[in-house]
Amino acid sequence: MATQGRLAVESVSKSYPVREGAVVALSDVTFDVAAGQFVVLIGPSGCGKSTLLHCIGGFVELTDGNIRLDDSAIRGPGSDRGIVFQREALFPWMTVEDNLRAALRPKGITGAEAEELIDTYLKAVGLGESRRLYPRELSGGMQQRAAIARTLIYQPSVLLLDEPLGALDAQTRELMKEWLVGIWLREQKTVVYVTHDLDEAVFLAQKVVVLSARPGRVKRIVDVNLRYPRDRRDPRYEEKREQLWKLIRDEVRFD
């Protein structure tokens, strides 16, 4: 079991200044993530779930509240948290292996040691053959796998995934979900995962944080205590899905 990667999100608020006043994106959000836990943030679009992830990443400053990683407050980005975005996460001007190499350089890992790591991680994500290709030459699913490999390789204790399957087609998404569960079980890392897809939440998460529409507040925290890999024919799976849908549907009304 992982010992590092405990996250505490404490009364976090975030507002953006606009022409007239401010838009409140997040309001008094509090929840915990245990080390090694898989947590999904879900909510209607515009509820600030991505903003919250960017706050945990340290890219966006909080208006109020605190985020602590293993008891020390987060101040800015750091290599203890790795992030993967929905699309174009890789540097397009570098080949796949150069992307991974770039991720190792700040750690001072170069030469044979780096090559060995790159080899291992590319094989782990099934991209050993495509290492010399540019991101544009890869399919969407391959790009996302490469991006995840690039994040895993520098050994962050928390993985932040910002709708990582959002830009993929439905079939690839299915495969990627199963693949993600495998990677997570093997790597034993804390994962904070943002999505608006209910099935992703139930299929992947141990804990689902449901956010309300803007301003985003924690509406409910739902634990999913089902065994991995999860079976969609399990009545309890459908039950959890139903429960989440009921929570969300009130938030996404047509006006």
Partner: peptide, 13 residues
């Protein structure tokens, strides 16, 4: 692309 800058910041650049 802001996400490229953020990714690089995360790596420790």
């Amino acid at each position: 692309n802001e996400s490229h800058v953020w990714a690089a910041l995360s790596m420790g650049y």
